[in-house]
Design a protein around this nucleic acid. Structure first.
Length: 833
RNA sequence: GGGCGGAUAGCUCAGCCGGUUAGAGCAUCGGCUUUACAAGCCGGGGGUCGCAGGUUCGAACCCUGCUCCGCCUACCA
């Protein structure tokens, strides 16, 4: 399989690591050999299933932050694979719904009134396909180990079928219903929204004190930030305990400009100390208006239309949008001296998360999934999952506790999964599809043999709305496990995959993807959707701001992988622990590249010193004649392995990488290899056994360390494995080889007291050489050592060979002439050329 | 308003179930080029651990309060 880096003889092993050639070659090797393929038939292995996040395919926004979060999940997934799990790791693409529509609208500058639904959907599908290809090529280039034969796209047949089955199931269980009530509405996107689609943004507004009049003509001041809604005012409220306004009981007041009489009502929720203690209720300015309108059966005076413009109720302001209307009304009120004061006020306004337009309320018939009545069940499900990091669970709990609306799943859009619903043209009764006919597009087909259950009518009109995109995305564990299919094969997969093992995802979609997925799983299966949740932080730019397309502060992954390699970019991703934001740092990526080069050279040192008859398994390590320093490095390695394993088990991949890198650089390369390397400079016969021993240890440690680097740096580790280690190993990829087993028999606790002294002497000798301007490898005739402690003399005698090797001295002599201090007060050294 | 996370060397971060002179990488300064690696190696300098109290023989670590940064959440119209 080798091309450029092929080598026959060990001495020809390439000096430089050519990542550009290797990464492409290795990607192809993985594909050609199905390295990451899930095998449903493998009975011997436990299954580890991953509920992969389907990113939006409007993919022009891809940046290194995306690579970061996918890589972080991947570190764990690759680790699990090496721990022997049968990994189910699909790739998903979310391409239905509003984000794609908005992307297409912008890209093609579409005017929705001049394009048919079909033409528009075609464009969405076309962009979807382009997006998927871009994603795939990026994931491939950074080494994401998904099994692409398990891919799904949220607009494909399986997803449409699953989403519609979910609807039918919930409908059948009475958990879904159609209601006519005020709903959250985006005037920009012209669609209704769910609470989760609305974010709060702080606006610098103005609080206007406006004069109303009582029946007797008494002046009443009402504070409001939304005077443009005056025409929709249906009541004025005071707190029942507020003596100032008791006299208004049973009376009405007159609104300014419109001179409309509205009733005065009382409610505990009115804050007496806010403004004048009077508040106006309009239909509808905010959720408080909706609440009072419902509880007190107030009149309805809808003043804003679906485009966010004022209607005829506003009188002369008809056709103006909210912003202009406010300006104009305030101007007129000022002229009439009805604005008594104006105070700047920062307040939070709900905006649509996709377009940042302030949301309004309108009245419409919509489908709702009931969620308010089962909050406790969802909290309980959250408690049954493991959260990494744990504190992210707080956000989940808080979101549920603060829910105020059932989940509105109707969207007045084109591109999405249709409702499997028609309405009787006679009486309006809803008729739902049969499960057997899913997926169904009610605009294209009619209900099978259906008669209206209410009036017996046989003519139907289709539901034109599409379902909220989260209605589909929330089903990913059920989509992946083929829940909507009844055949035996699918049922088997379902039982194998569900509930899933891991859900990796970003923090900002806890309230949507995560929460809705729990809702669906609890409702459909009574179970949790997955056992472990890992929530990644954000990729930040160099200045600490969240990377995003709209801010233009994003770094393109291609640019970085071309310059530094994919392994190096992944190394950067490993720098942040789970849930932490990570600044992009080109220096860290460069460090990643340095690490790959270090690994390459350390392994190359072994390869070029091994003879062609080298056999690492000729003897078990325990049978070798180990020196104290060999025992020490084995001990250090085993301790590192143990820590790293524990870190990976607890999702602390960052600490694993740090620990491993520290071991590899400091213990293995800078000390062990430096101490033993001169054994290869000496051709004498008496050295040959020592050489073999050292080669075996180097093989053992470097292979296992390379395996441990493999989840983080899949390309270089695979290249080293295939081009060298595989001559002695059986697996066809390092990524399906076993993560090293901890071996207690290779922990030599005694060795630490020897190594401490040796390293202390080596350290001092390095300082001394620096002081003497002496090259570190330059041989010296003698090392003089003064040990002020009898135990030390014995120890030093015991390891004198290792010491001489380490400090490149021909002889070791105890002498009180040694005067250079080491960090141990009981040892002094000197070097003699 | 409530909550969560963070504040440790010039920069990015470890350490935080209390225990010897607080660590790493980068940056900086000095030295070293036949013998794995100059995209390298060796060495040096650099920190009153956000602030103020408290508990303790002992606090970066535990407790209380505060300040600043980021985020989540909330009906002050």
């Amino acid at each position: 399989m080798q091309e450029k880096n092929d080598f026959i003889d060990f001495k020809d092993f390439p000096k430089n690591y050519d990542y550009k050639v290797v990464e492409e070659k290795i990607s192809k090797y993985w594909e050609d050999n199905d390295i990451y393929k899930f095998s449903p038939e493998d009975k011997g292995k436990r299954v580890y299933s991953v509920d992969t996040p389907p990113p939006y395919v409007s993919s022009a926004h891809l940046h290194v932050g995306h690579v970061m979060s996918y890589s972080q999940a991947e570190f764990i997934i690759r680790y699990k694979r090496m721990k022997g799990f049968n990994v189910f790791y699909p790739m998903g693409f979310d391409d239905n719904g509003l984000p794609t529509e908005r992307y297409v609208e912008k890209k093609y500058k579409i005017n929705k009134s001049k394009i048919t639904r079909e033409e528009f959907i075609d464009l969405c599908l076309k962009e979807t396909k382009i997006g998927i290809d871009i994603y795939k090529s990026l994931w491939r280039s950074v080494g994401i180990s998904a099994d692409y034969s398990l891919s799904y796209s949220t607009i494909d047949e399986r997803c449409r079928k699953t989403a519609q089955k979910s609807f039918l199931d919930l409908y059948g269980k009475g958990l879904i219903e159609r209601r006519n009530e005020p709903i959250l509405w985006c005037p920009q996107c012209r669609t209704s929204l769910a609470q989760a689609d609305v974010l709060l943004e702080e606006f610098a507004g103005v609080l206007y004190d406006i004069e109303f009049k009582s029946d007797e003509g008494k002046s009443l001041i009402i504070s409001t930030t939304r005077p443009e809604l005056l025409g929709g005012c249906v009541a004025v409220y005071a707190n029942p305990a507020d003596e100032r306004y008791r006299f208004l009981e049973g009376k009405s007041v007159k609104t300014p400009l419109y001179d409309k009489n509205v009733p005065v009502k009382y409610d505990e929720s009115v804050d007496m100390s806010y403004g004048s203690g009077l508040m106006m209720v309009c239909t509808w300015g905010d959720s408080e208006d909706v609440k009072k309108w419902k509880e007190h059966n107030l009149d309805t005076a809808i003043i804003i239309d679906r485009a966010g413009r004022l209607n005829e109720l506003s009188g002369g302001y008809k056709g103006l949008n909210v912003k202009d209307a406010k300006k104009s009304i305030v101007e007129n009120l000022r002229k009439m001296s009805l604005v008594k004061s104006e105070k700047p006020l920062n307040h939070n306004v709900g905006v649509h998360d996709r377009c940042s337009t302030p949301v309004e309320f309108i009245l419409a018939e919509q489908w709702f999934v009931k969620i308010l009545e089962n909050k406790e069940k969802f909290i309980d499900a959250g408690n049954r999952m493991s959260w990494h990091p744990q504190f992210m669970k707080t956000r989940y709990d808080e979101w549920i506790n603060n829910l105020k609306w059932d989940w509105n799943i109707s969207r007045q859009r084109f591109y999405g999964v249709p409702f499997p619903v028609w309405y009787c043209s006679e009486c309006g009764e809803a008729v739902v599809a049969h499960e057997a006919e899913l997926p169904v597009d009610p605009a294209v087909s009619m209900p099978i043999n259906a008669k209206c259950a209410k009036c017996g009518g046989s003519k139907f009109i289709p539901e034109n709305d599409v379902m909220d995109t989260w209605m589909t995305s929330s089903l990913t564990p059920l989509i992946n496990s083929l829940w909507s299919y009844e055949d035996a094969e699918s049922k088997k997969i379902y039982n194998t995959i569900y509930p899933m093992g891991l859900r990796p995802q970003a923090q900002e979609i806890i309230r949507t993807w995560l929460f809705y997925t729990v809702v669906k799983s609890v409702y459909h299966t009574g179970d949790i959707p997955f056992k472990d949740v890992m929530i990644s932080g954000w990729g930040l730019d160099r200045n600490g701001k969240k990377m995003s397309k709209s801010l233009g502060n994003f770094v393109s992954p291609e640019e970085i992988t071309v310059k530094y390699s994919a392994d190096a970019l992944r190394y950067w991703a490993s720098k942040a622990n789970l849930g932490q934001d990570l600044r992009f740092s080109e220096e860290d990526v460069a460090n990643g590249r340095r690490l790959t080069i270090k690994i390459w050279n350390a392994v190359r040192f072994l390869i070029t010193n091994a003879e062609s008859d080298f056999n690492p398994y000729e003897k078990n390590i325990k049978e070798l004649k180990l020196s104290r320093i060999d025992e020490w490095i084995l001990t250090e390695f085993e301790n590192t392995l143990k820590s790293c394993g524990n870190y990976m088990e607890s999702y602390e991949y960052s600490l694993c990488m740090r620990t491993l890198q520290d071991f590899f650089y400091n213990s293995y390369c800078d000390n062990y290899l430096e101490i033993i390397k001169n054994v290869f400079w000496d051709e004498s016969e008496e050295n040959s056994e020592r050489k073999k021993t050292v080669l075996n240890i180097m093989y053992f440690i470097s292979l296992n360390a390379v395996k441990m680097f493999a989840p983080f740096m899949p390309f270089i580790t695979e290249e080293l494995y295939l081009s060298f280690y595989k001559r002695y190993e059986k697996d066809k990829s390092i990524h399906i080889s076993f993560w090293p087993e901890f071996r207690n028999d290779l922990v030599f606790n005694d060795s630490l007291k020897y190594s401490a002294i040796l390293l202390n002497i080596l350290d001092a000798s390095r300082k001394l050489r620096t002081n003497l301007n002496l090259h570190q490898n330059h041989k010296v005739h003698k090392i003089l050592i003064q040990a002020l402690n009898q135990d030390y003399i014995e120890i030093i005698n015991d390891i004198s060979g290792d010491i001489r090797s380490a400090v490149r001295a021909e002889r070791l002599i105890f002498s009180d002439k040694a005067d250079f201090k080491t960090s141990d007060d009981n040892i002094l050294i000197a070097l003699e050329k």
